[in-house]
Design a protein around this nucleic acid. Structure first.
Lengths: 152, 152
DNA sequence: CTTAACCATTGACATTTTCAACGAATAGCG
DNA sequence: CGCTATTCGTTGAAAATGTCAATGGTTAAG
């Protein structure tokens, strides 16, 4: 098993570049490599991170409307529609008209959806473990803590 | 001056959602909000983060080829072409055929380019300060340190 | 009851990503 | 030296993503 060559190999001399101190850049790069790694793993379930995120929320404690999903995930309502079309076609979630406000639709997971989420979750955790492998367990926790403060 | 309403306001009940513990999700969200904030500031210079990144590297110590920019920024070579077309049209950078390998082109900043970078850098720093405002100075340093370890 | 606002959805459009193919130039090897 | 394979920047097409206005159905406010 050959280690996949780092695409940015041979550029160690750039580690001192001013850009390397910019959090915007670091975040973008970390997020980009991280989610593309996760997407690769999720591909075997024909999922992408965006589907995984919606599915995860659908499988959570709170029952959410599409509007709420849209706000929380910072995605346009129309994108939520597309993602839900995929997930619903696969029988992973259901749209239920909110009885208290028939404009909204509440997203609920099916049994198959929960199963799918369980599998996906494992894959994502593997991917995360690899992505964060340069960090110690304590550092991973700290990173998550800091990101959470920034992201909300 | 009214504080722009947080788009994800009223969803505090989701802060305990399982998804909130996933670094992939946190990174994506932090990166997304962070760079869209930076983009807004950079708009007054008619720049985006991607242009800023290339300009920053061009203004650094190392003289880089397009291929190297592409690898370091994890962007397709064709995207580098487009970004450089913009920057060159504005007279911020120059493409110089590498005398040691006439296939490659070395990117060099012009005087105007350095000036532009200086202005842009200030804007980005302001944006970063706002984005990371929920963190203490020590936490910001720690976040940068951790991100750097992950991103490279 | 009427008007304004909200939700999910659709469709159009811009931006970004991804990929294959090309000419020019170099590197490796006989 | 000559031939072949590889690399570089560039172009163009296709797919994915993001952004935005308009719609029908529904609710809220007066």
């Amino acid at each position: 098993m050959t280690t996949p060559t780092d695409p940015s190999a041979g550029l160690e001399r750039l580690l001192e570049a001013e850009l390397t101190t910019e959090p915007v850049f670091l975040m973008a790069r970390a997020a980009s490599t991280g989610s593309s790694a996760a997407n690769k793993k999720l591909a075997q379930l024909e999922l992408k991170v965006r589907h995984y995120s919606v599915l995860a929320l659908a499988c959570g404690e709170e029952r959410l409307t599409q509007r709420e999903l849209s706000q929380f995930l910072v995605l346009d309502p129309s994108q939520i529609v597309a993602i839900l079309d995929d997930l619903e076609r696969r029988g992973a979630v259901e749209r239920r008209t909110d009885p208290r406000d028939r404009r909204s639709k509440i997203i609920a997971p099916t049994a198959a959806g929960r199963k799918l989420y369980a599998q996906a979750r494992t894959l994502v955790e593997n991917s995360t473990a690899e992505s964060l492998s340069p960090l110690s367990p304590a550092e991973r926790d700290e990173l998550s803590r800091l990101l959470k403060k920034v992201a909300f």
